[in-house]
Design a protein around this nucleic acid. Structure first.
Lengths: 342, 342
DNA sequence: ATTGATAGCTTAATCCTTTAAGCTAAGTGA
DNA sequence: TCACTTAGCTTAAAGGATTAAGCTATCAAT
């Protein structure tokens, strides 16, 4: 059973395809199609369950009603959650989402942007990798709606939604200090990503302001190499036994770290304070529970998709905006003064 | 800078669009285009960075190279992980993925299938909701490649990939029994989804085989209603104090349950054995660590996308297959005899 | 010289919509 | 009666590819 075309609808009703098209697109009045005919056509379409061919429509109009979502890794709960939120709003507005993961590989990121261009997506949501500014600039120059997310490209005039990494990190570190921790280590990725650098700087500012010593451990993250990370952290703790708290710059570093500490028999909270960037069920449920900086996922997603929709609606009037949302500092047991009782 | 069309390529080189098209599609030899001309055209295309319009191509050929992925919730780590695996393989084969979440709402699921049809996706991966058999049957009847996932529709002749819920549940319950737990409660959703029923039946079989008493608690899951679930579980534990182990039928039920038990001060592992369907970082790291049945995500995803690709490659030769993969029973501290020392 | 085959292309229909421009009949005003 | 409007459509080009069928020149064989 082949799909019906607008042509068949037209010939069945002995009218032209233009008329059908106008009616389909709600331009009946504007094009002065009589209400009677409009009703007749609508009824026929309903009855025969006719659905216009989206491809032909897109070819003609240049609009696909598809949003391209390029994230670091769709399997990461953070990005998956964003994908979920975005989807809700997008679907309400008639947009579908096509996703892909860069795995933080600039080459793959470039390919993805190219592919999405080829596919004529109407708008882009991108977590940029390093060295991808040119591709993004190219999109902007082509007047294509783009919103960056999670990481900014400082040199571009473009919409961006993210959180205040520097400030949150600074506040979190300050909180640890207020709890009388004196030697706070910062475990982060060996990365030049702006958000990672901001997190580090926020920590360092709090440390310097309080005339404390900074202990920064940069580890290289590679899938399935957790034991290497553990070794590095263990080594740091042994070399610098004065460390009394650890601030993890990411979720998965913390998970690896917690596993190590459990294995080492170090009592989190009592012997070692802890703070983590990016919350997780695990941190809430762990005993003792672990303090975290929760990204405002819901708010960011909402802003993201709103910006993009607005941009897609009127490409000319839209002006870029940078939205930096505050994170939620969630204080739990791992960073309380509990350890003093030890 | 408008995008170049095949027409412009042709006229620039003073040849016909057909020639260009044949060369683009690797049919140069077959169509006896001379190697010189082929080279010339390839060079021109390369130089001017010409990329054919995918929409036009799709309109003509009827192929979009897009796979529709319909899951319960893309934000759920399980489905997100599947999405990640599928993406890898799909992209290698030139397919893009468009996703959406049913939220287990049959009405939404139907709409999604319709929308994907409208968009001419080449193949479908679906976690069906209840009452959606007709829509899926319609897809099959239209010779569209579909692979079901996670939950089967028993009445349809269709490819399916899932795990052995009954067997895994049975084995897990048997393991608990072997550890001398005598009163094992099963906490599950009040759902008629086949995989949930299988999990329950697996548990019950192990219970009956060992002449034990079954304690089944069915709770209604609704977002942000965790406290209701907690109340129900707490009530059960108070009414039936003889319960010495809990088997949670899903990940998030267990997370809620653990939170409650921590709050109640019940010592997991020592006072109460525990087993969970569907693994999670949390269960590995929790102290004591919590036993779980890990879904074979990687294997399922691989099978899923392979089946679908094969089906899409030759719709006629392909025959449906049902793949039921074994789960991984991961024994951790929460279900060892440790409690006997208490 | 004629036929046939083959290499090496081209022509033009087709996929299905959208939409600017045009056409016809009826009604209005002078 | 004639010129103009207006209502209510229709015509046909365009969007950018694919592909069956056809065309021409060359060369070999008879």
């Amino acid at each position: 059973m082949k799909k019906m075309s607008i042509k068949e609808v037209a010939s069945a009703l002995q009218i032209s395809t233009a008329t059908v098209s106008y009616i389909l697109n709600g331009k009946a009045k504007e094009k002065r199609i009589s209400p009677e005919l409009t009703k007749k056509v609508t009824a026929f379409i309903e009855e025969n369950n006719f659905r216009p061919n989206h491809l032909a429509k897109s070819l003609r109009t240049g609009k696909t009603n598809v949003i391209g979502l390029i994230v670091e890794d769709i399997a990461d709960p953070f990005f998956a959650s964003v994908a979920g939120h975005i989807e809700n709003v997008a679907y309400e507005n008639g947009y579908k989402i096509i996703y892909s993961s860069t795995k933080n590989d600039p080459k793959k990121a470039k390919e993805l942007i190219d592919t999405f261009r080829d596919r004529n997506v109407d708008g882009y949501i991108i977590t940029p990798t390093e060295g991808i500014d040119n591709e993004i600039k190219y999109l902007i120059d082509s007047k294509l709606p783009v919103v960056l997310f999670d990481r900014n490209c400082n040199d571009l005039d473009i919409s961006y939604v993210g959180m205040n990494n520097f400030e949150s990190s600074y506040q979190a570190a300050k909180y640890l200090i207020s709890q009388d921790y004196k030697n706070i280590a910062f475990v982060t990725l060996d990365s030049v990503q702006p958000q990672m650098i901001d997190r580090l700087l926020g920590y360092e500012r709090a440390i310097y302001e309080n005339r404390l010593t900074s202990f920064v451990k940069k580890v290289e993250y590679r899938a399935a190499k957790e034991h290497l990370i553990m070794a590095e952290i263990e080594n740091m703790l042994k070399t610098e036994p004065q460390i009394d708290a650890i601030f993890f710059a990411t979720n998965y570093l913390a998970i690896t770290g917690i596993e190590l500490l459990n294995r080492m028999g170090v009592k989190i909270g009592e012997e070692l304070g802890m703070m983590v960037f990016d919350d997780n069920d695990l941190f809430r449920i762990h005993q003792p529970s672990i303090s975290a900086i929760a990204q405002p996922i819901q708010e960011m997603s909402q802003q993201l998709i709103n910006d993009l929709l607005e941009h897609m609606q009127d490409t000319n009037e839209y002006t870029n905006r940078t939205t930096v949302l505050p994170a939620h500092l969630i204080i739990r047991d791992s960073s309380s003064k509990m350890r003093k009782n030890a």
